[in-house]
Amino acid sequence: MSVMTNFHGLIPAMAVPFRADHSIDEQELTGFAQWLARQPGVVGMMTNGHTGEVFSLTPRERAEVTRIVARATEGVCPVVSSVVCEGIRDGIEQAGWAREAGAKALDIMPPHHWLRFGFRPSHVIEYFTAIGEASGLPLIVHVYPAWTKASFSSDLLAELAQLPFVKAFKIGTREMNKYARDLQAIRAVAPGKALLTCHDEYLLASMVQGVDGALVGFASLIPGLINDLLQAVRNGDLKTAQMLQAKIDPLKEAVYGGGEPTGEAHANMKAAMAAAGIFRSGAVRAPTIAPNAQELAVIAEAVASAGLSRLRAA
């Protein structure tokens, strides 16, 4: 069984197109995956993230999304699938479905009950170890914001970094002081593990901390701009990086406003993808709410101003 080995670069968290009846549009998803896989700097693609409206999908639908994307990009780009569940047995089962569907790595989100009740560090180590040993796939640690009860301490992140199956960290700390400490703690014990920003709403500020790539939903819309920004930061070209971030900012404001990614922000991004010609429709599944007419006008103006019209067709 082949696995994903390179986590250094751009990994878009994929949006999922729906038909008018809210079923998964396999033809549209296939074309989108093939387009995204060819974008410069893309080293993998992630299915079943928050951008993909994962909480509106059944576990079997999540496996189906991964199957569609893996089949569309076979031999071109490896697929990472997120695992979103409540316990170890559930995690092992869903990880197995993802592997069978063609996933070459897994992004492991914290179980929802950790958000409600918290956890002991031993719970986290046991969870990742069980899924890693059962699946045999490389794991990405999905780091939740510092203000949540599912936030991992810097010491726990360092412990996770030493697990053999853990190969990368999708870091969404969203508190820059802790973010810097987290990066330092991981680097100190496992310098070869990939550190990936998932701060869609302030990319440049998070990239200049010394990360290895970006795993962001925003790359479903603007993979080229985000890759250019990452390369400018890697090259130490701050002037170019600032210029690129200035291009991104109006789109960022239209999609995310002044906050973090949310269900409604993901709906805004799908609307922007439709306006850019990436998707035929910006349809979302409940409970996500589509943007209203005023919001759609703002999104359309930002897409036009950024020169993204008919992006996929180009």
Rank of each mutant, 00 (worst) to 15 (best):
E61R: 09
V143D: 10
P261K: 06
I226E: 09
G49W: 03
V216C: 13
L157E: 12
F117Y: 15
V255T: 09
A286I: 13
V141L: 11
A205V: 14
D212T: 08
R60E: 15
C198R: 01
E253K: 15
A265D: 04
Q184S: 12
L160H: 02
L196D: 11
N177Y: 04
D21N: 12
L204A: 11
E264F: 07
L29Q: 05
V141H: 04
I140W: 00
H50D: 13
L195G: 06
G210N: 06
L203G: 06
V79W: 01
V211G: 02
K104C: 12
S206P: 06
A271Q: 13
I131L: 14
K247W: 00
E53M: 09
Q27R: 15
I24H: 07
G132H: 03
L156S: 05
L311Q: 13
G44I: 02
A219M: 06
E264G: 07
P261T: 08
A194C: 08
E126L: 13
L106S: 09
L311T: 05
V143K: 00
T47A: 11
L308N: 03
C85R: 04
E28Q: 15
A190D: 10
V16S: 06
A302R: 10
R62Y: 00
Y179W: 13
A297R: 08
G213T: 10
G44R: 00
R174C: 09
V255H: 02
K252R: 15
L229S: 08
I278S: 02
N48Q: 06
A290Q: 12
L215S: 09
Q27Y: 09
P287L: 07
A72I: 10
A214P: 00
E260Y: 11
D200Q: 07
V211R: 07
G257T: 11
L160I: 11
A276C: 10
P191L: 02
A150L: 11
A105Q: 03
A33W: 02
F117A: 15
S122M: 08
G172H: 06
V255N: 02
G258E: 10
A290H: 09
H8G: 07
A63H: 03
P164I: 10
H199W: 08
D21W: 00
R89E: 05
A146I: 10
R62P: 00
Q39W: 01
A267E: 03
E28K: 11
H113I: 14
A70N: 03
S151T: 11
D249P: 00
S309Q: 14
L251H: 03
A168T: 03
R181S: 13
L196F: 05
P191A: 07
M273W: 01
A190R: 04
A15G: 10
G118K: 06
L204C: 09
D90A: 14
R62A: 04
A302L: 08
D228R: 12
A214D: 06
K252V: 01
S56L: 02
A254P: 05
R89I: 03
G41W: 01
M4P: 03
I131P: 04
W114N: 08
S151F: 08
A246I: 04
T47S: 12
G52E: 08
G257H: 07
F18M: 09
G307N: 10
R181E: 15
V3A: 12
A130W: 06
